[in-house]
Design a protein around this nucleic acid. Structure first.
Length: 426
RNA sequence: GCGGGUGUAGCUCAGUCGGUUAGAGCGCCAGUUUGUGGCACUGGAGGUCGCCGGUUCGAAACCGGUCACUCGCCCCA
């Protein structure tokens, strides 16, 4: 702490990192809009119960990963570790249950007190969608298709595999749970310590244990899909049929169990092996009981969230935008005219830098190194003539242009609507 | 919360067996170039060797602690 540094597990988003984040968020925003989702935002902190009730007292997220604080009024709050509960709370708070179905997109920071690793931060960023209202499997398929499309637009879909499972409805899950516990209790002594604890608190979680010994035992365990009742099986069939019809590839993963208690029926994850230990890039499922857990009316829902940092790492770097034009005066007498010209060009929608300091050579050098393509140079000669020198720093060509023609000339070269903060590829 | 690895210039990294003045490349600044960038050459700035303590005549190096990053466990986005 002797040196000034950000809090553990947090990081600054300098322009390079911000550009990588922005491409992810922009792609997700654009794709989800194409599927009819509307952007919204909830506060980054909520009353603690908003998260503690629905996520489950035995979930790791609640038991050891939340940031909690008490404010001056004595209320206890939690920094949101995920956003589904907040969105459903917002639906209830705003009386939107009268306007179902609802399709929401969100993007923003989440907070979990975890040991940081590559792709795992204490403050991280998620994008996500929530589809509230419909109970049918087509809705599940639609959000999965939307997620696949986001990954595809980012060029990372071929690095990911879609794992799919059904947790069934409450009856199916309870029937399975009993069968699983009965089986696992016969092997309790051979289970890992973690799994022995989960046997009492949340036995389904044992299914996705990575412990080799646990996995050996699980080979002979009863299968969840064999315990689905007719309605649950039909729901899952509707989802997979729709995915197949759209040509979306998926793998049945009977061991996929997601960490939060509110999930039912469909559970899915897009998984990659390109990010070390952090395999999940986008994950979600159905949460028909969540609204009631929060004290609202029964409202079905299905959605997913994706990690912006992880997607940004998969998608790779993107160039940071720089202005296209630098206007520079070669002597102090021309400064105010150069300033006015810069303003006129900016008013036309073209991004302009106005370098200062050093002589004209230094300014040219800085502009060139920054990747600025066009230099507008204004010296005593030009000031007297009412002209400027317009120099193409890419080709080295230079021409004299009347000041009154400058905006039109630049628009002709750069093009309308293409002037703001574009990095030059050539 | 548990285990392993790593912290030297803005960045990437050297630094021998513990030895006196800690280096390189890139980047940055300046000059060669008093109205013009890239290329080249020359010069310069920049270091509490992560931090605290210990061992020693002497520590960037060895030991302990601590902080951070990183890989894995766990968990998830």
């Amino acid at each position: 702490m002797s040196r000034l540094q950000p809090a553990r597990g947090t990081s600054d988003l300098l322009p390079d990192a911000m550009a990588a984040h922005r491409q992810v968020i922009t792609a997700a925003r654009e794709v989800s809009a194409r599927y009819g989702f509307q952007e919204m935002a909830t506060p980054i902190f909520e009353f603690a119960e908003v998260f503690s009730r629905p996520l489950g007292d035995s979930s790791d997220v609640v038991t050891k990963e939340t940031y909690n604080f008490t404010d001056r009024g004595g209320e206890t709050f939690t920094l949101r570790p995920e956003n589904t509960a907040g969105v459903v709370r917002a639906m209830i708070s705003n009386g939107l249950t009268q306007s179902l179905p609802l399709k929401f997109f969100y993007a923003g920071p989440m907070f979990r007190y975890e040991r940081p690793q590559k792709g795992r931060m204490r403050q991280f960023h998620q994008i996500g969608i929530e589809f509230l209202g419909p109970r049918d499997g087509l809705a599940d398929a639609e959000i999965i298709a939307c997620g696949a499309r986001v990954l595809s637009d980012l060029g990372v879909l071929d690095k990911c595999k879609l794992h799919l499972n059904s947790l069934g409805d409450t009856d199916s899950r309870q029937a399975y749970r009993s069968a699983l516990v009965a089986f696992l209790e016969r092997h309790a002594d051979d289970l890992s310590d973690d799994s022995q604890a989960r046997l009492k608190t949340n036995p389904l979680r044992i299914l996705d244990s990575k412990n080799a010994g646990d996995r050996d035992i699980l080979v002979d365990a009863p299968r969840l899909d064999a315990h689905l009742n007719a309605e649950s099986a039909a729901h899952f069939k509707a989802v997979t049929t729709a995915l197949d019809a759209a040509g979306i590839k998926w793998e049945f993963d009977p061991l996929l169990v997601r960490g939060l208690d509110y999930y039912c029926h469909t559970a899915f994850e897009f998984i990659t092996d390109a990010l070390g230990a952090q395999g999940t890039v986008l994950g979600g499922g159905r949460y028909d009981g969540l609204s009631e857990m929060l004290g609202g009316p029964p409202v079905a829902g299905v959605g997913w969230a994706a990690g912006v940092e992880r997607l940004a790492m998969l998608a790779g770097d993107v160039p940071v935008g720089v202005p296209r034009v630098a206007v520079m005066s070669a002597e102090p007498d021309a400064d105010s005219t150069a300033f006015a010209l810069a303003e006129a060009v900016r008013a036309a929608g073209i991004a302009v830098d106005l370098p200062s300091g050093g002589n004209i050579g230094k300014r040219m050098k800085k502009a060139d190194r920054a990747g600025i393509r066009y230099a507008v140079i204004l010296g005593g000669q030009e000031l007297a003539n009412g002209t400027v020198q317009l120099r193409d720093l890419g080709e080295g060509a230079q021409q004299e242009v009347a000041q009154t023609d400058l905006v039109a000339r630049l628009l002709g070269i750069i093009g309308k609507g293409d002037g703001a903060m574009k990095s030059d590829e050539s």
